[in-house]
Design a protein around this nucleic acid. Structure first.
Lengths: 196, 196
DNA sequence: AATATATGTAAGCAAGTACTTGCTTTGGAG
DNA sequence: CTCCAAAGCAAGTACTTGCTTACATATATT
């Protein structure tokens, strides 16, 4: 007997890959079946309908989301290294779930739930950074006058902007390697915070 | 006789509005005709086919793009106020062409030309800022050690990230008014550059 | 009044697409 | 060997959607 879970995963993987390219509506169940090397009917037997695939994919996504705040305890209470840690975690997460995030950004109307779910990433990130910066203030490592909420958003916009520029524009003029971004941009941001 | 240009504009406007909501494939020619209050056939008489509407819309967009670098001469050679001017110009432009920009980001595969065209926004912005910062260095108003290309990209990511966060996530927790963004984030960035 | 141009109306076609149904095949567990 | 869950296969249905065709109507210009 064939492992049912394995086929389901194959279908989800093919689905996500295709959606990343063609968008949700551009992804046909036939194309999914071909890419996953299964019969089209198998898809419907597993997920009922096309939306069911997304639903299943989102579930694995949201359960992983819960794990994010754990790193709050991994802080060294050094601004540069901690912001670097957070940025790196953010990018590995966001790269891994690129397909779903793109769906959330694209299919705002047809899948408000996914958009809502994807919006949780910056929201969660925001609270993490706000908590972190507050604690840094308490420890006297950050100037009192700093507007923590604004700075949390600055950090988010910077990272989100970098991520989307890299993934959505193929132009070489805009390509900046991850290491450069971390070493230059995040550190610049951390130093700017310190200097205030 | 009815003004043909006017109907064409009505169609393009309806098209852009719908695409912003539903995406390109989610936008049917029937829906466009209803929203524009014209007959469906009129659309095809004007633009030949569905892609023709996009093509026409992109044309007005690209011609406006050409005008952008003109503001290079509007600089006061004061970091804060100049970056503010550039940021404000960027956001008014990007807000105006939101629909097309979203198509460019979403429909990378079906409309590579539009993606290419939309990518010109950050590319053009990049050269504008690089030129500006270089001149500021020459005038002794900016530290020599500053990596101009990186800082140009930082500025772009910040603005692009802000723009997309505002337009794609409806959550109130992430909403920051434009004035706050300009006054806090852009000024923070300018000060950080000065401090280097 | 006549002409030309822009649009409306009605009907429909061809292709694609999500989803169904009924039947067959496969391969591991008892 | 038998049973059964999981998957393949073939055919088809119902519906949507981009686009076409043929004809009627309105209005500005000559």
């Amino acid at each position: 007997m064939v492992d049912a879970n394995q086929t389901a995963e194959k279908i989800i993987a093919a689905f996500l890959e295709l959606v990343q390219e063609k968008g949700y509506k551009g992804t046909t169940t036939r194309a999914i079946s071909e890419k996953a090397n299964v019969n089209e009917v198998t898809i419907f037997r597993h997920f009922g309908n096309k939306k069911g695939i997304i639903k299943a994919a989102v579930q694995t996504f949201s359960s992983r989301m819960q794990l994010l705040p754990i790193i709050e305890h991994d802080m060294a209470w050094d601004l540069e290294s901690d912001l670097l840690t957070i940025a790196k975690l953010y990018h590995s997460f966001v790269t891994k779930y690129e397909a779903l995030i793109l769906i959330g950004i694209r299919e705002t109307v047809d899948f408000p739930e996914i958009n809502e779910e994807v919006a949780q990433i910056p929201i969660k990130l925001k609270t993490i950074i706000i908590n972190y910066l507050s604690e840094m203030k308490k420890r006297g490592k950050l100037a009192e006058k700093i507007n923590i909420e604004i700075q949390a958003m600055n950090f988010i916009w910077l990272n989100f902007g970098y991520f989307l520029t890299q993934t959505r524009f193929k132009d070489t003029e805009l390509k900046i390697p991850k290491e450069t971004f971390f070493k230059e941009s995040i550190i610049f941001f951390a130093e700017a915070l310190k200097a205030q």
